[in-house]
Simulated assay, not measured.
Amino acid sequence: MRQPLVAGNWKMHGSRAMARALSQAVVRGTAELDAIEVVLLPPYVLIPRVSEEVADSAVVLGAQNVATAREGAFTGEISAPMLREFGCRYALVGHSERRQLFGETDALVAKRALAALQEDLRPIVCVGETLAEREASETEDVVLRQLDAVLSAVPEAQLGQVVFAYEPVWAIGTGRTATPEQAQAVHALLRERLHRLGAEIGRRARILYGGSVKPGNAGELLAMPDIDGGLIGGASLVADDFLAICEQAALRRE
């Protein structure tokens, strides 16, 4: 069975004190949840603080993005080797906020994913449709286009290191959540596409769900056969809420 993964995307929130307290609470609260993998994705400037707090635990550190180049004249970018040096093992790429607010294209997202893999960082690749695209019955076309851009760039031998995340844009931070059935349908679609590359790739690939996941709806979502965990936004900033979701993910493995 695929190991469930719960990743907390703090977005642009936090301070040194908050990072310390929240990281410590997550480390304590997940100490016995060895059935799942827990990843924290703080803002860049808080990575050193979080790295210190999770160093001797099973909690894994990640970044919210990664540059396409190893080094050079790329003001404002942070490279994969830099992230590795501070203990990161994952990098989020293609989040809808990056796509919509900063104009990141499918091609750029694919380059970021490949850059992460080349430095032994595991990319968490986000795909998802807007409300207008869903209402126009374009969900399948959109998410498969986004997925295929990554699949065409990443060598097949490295696909096992990639985590995928379906985040319907209309459900991110809106309080609206895809029903378990809606989410499962898209997850199954993504897995079927991965199956075409090989049965083992499709079987092993972890696909997370994100979009207003809370303790109250996590159980139903995580019970779906093709949902392997959650990419958690707002609820990851509240220790009790995040830990409740982690506990429900652990139940999925039992």
Rank of each mutant, 00 (worst) to 15 (best):
S212A: 08
L194H: 07
V163N: 10
G175E: 00
A185R: 10
E181M: 10
L197Q: 04
R193C: 14
V169G: 09
R191I: 10
I207E: 03
T179F: 02
I207M: 00
E167R: 09
I172H: 00
G173Q: 06
V213W: 03
G173C: 06
A171L: 01
E181P: 12
H195R: 15
H187G: 05
V186C: 02
Q161W: 12
Q182A: 05
V169I: 13
F164Q: 00
R203P: 13
T179D: 11
A183P: 12
I207V: 11
R176K: 15
R203L: 15
T177N: 09
H187C: 11
A165G: 03
R206A: 05
A185Y: 12
Q161M: 13
I201H: 12
T177P: 09
F164A: 00
V169T: 01
R206F: 11
Y166W: 11
I207A: 04
Q184M: 02
Q184W: 07
V186R: 03
V169M: 01
F164D: 04
G198C: 07
E167W: 12
T174E: 03
R203K: 15
I207T: 07
R196D: 10
P168Q: 10
S212N: 03
A205F: 14
R176D: 13
E200H: 14
L197C: 07
G210C: 10
R191V: 05
E181H: 12
G173V: 09
G198D: 06
T179Q: 02
Q184A: 03
E167F: 08
T177F: 06
A199S: 12
A205W: 12
A199D: 14
V163A: 07
R204Y: 14
E192V: 11
E192D: 14
E192W: 12
L197M: 03
R204C: 13
A205H: 12
G211I: 04
T177W: 09
V162N: 00
A165W: 11
R204I: 05
R191E: 08
W170C: 00
T177Q: 13
E181L: 11
L189Q: 08
G175V: 02
A183Y: 14
A171V: 01
Q182D: 07
A171P: 12
V163P: 12
V169A: 01
G210D: 08
V169L: 03
A188M: 07
R196K: 14
R204V: 13
E167V: 02
G211N: 06
Y166R: 11
H187P: 08
V213Q: 08
E192R: 15
I201L: 15
V163S: 04
L197E: 04
G202Q: 02
A165P: 10
W170H: 00
G173W: 12
V162T: 04
L194M: 13
R191T: 00
L189M: 13
T179G: 01
R203M: 08
R196H: 14
Y209V: 05
V162W: 07
L190E: 09
L190K: 09
A178D: 06
E200C: 02
T174Y: 06
I201A: 08
